[in-house]
């Protein structure tokens, strides 16, 4: 799925695909390219951190089904950022359907 197909979903401001070191591979959206690059880098840093925390939680809880972590959502006052695998989307809360966007990211992450 091309990133454009995620960008056209209601409320999506930007969507980026990034490498394992956080470098942006491709980005689409209405924010400047420099901000897209920064978004990708932050998303990857945060993803690694959440994954590390989840590994620890899984280790001590001994509960299956948490790791490897798929992604995260940070729900802001007016905007939300969500990540699945190496994709990150920035969305406007007023227009976006978070469920639809998470499903699209999950779908795109398998391609």
């Amino acid at each position: 799925m091309s990133l454009k197909r995620i960008l056209v979903l209601d409320g999506v401001i930007a969507v980026c695909r990034f490498q394992d070191d956080g470098t942006i591979l491709e980005g689409e959206g209405v924010i400047p390219a420099e901000m897209q690059g920064r978004l990708a880098q932050f998303a990857q840093w945060y993803r690694r951190m959440v994954a590390g925390n989840t590994d620890l939680f899984s280790l001590f809880s001994q509960m299956r089904g948490w790791t490897p972590a798929k992604g995260w959502i940070v729900h802001g006052a007016n905007m939300t950022v969500c990540n699945v695998a190496n994709l990150v989307a920035m969305v406007d809360n007023r227009e976006a359907s978070l469920n639809e966007i998470m499903a699209a990211l999950e779908h795109a992450s398998h391609e």
Binding site: W45, Y46, R48, M49, A51, G52, N53, D55, L56, L59
Partner: peptide, 8 residues
């Protein structure tokens, strides 16, 4: 995990 965390 902790190193990963603090490093990030």
């Amino acid at each position: 995990a902790n190193t990963l965390n603090v490093s990030m």
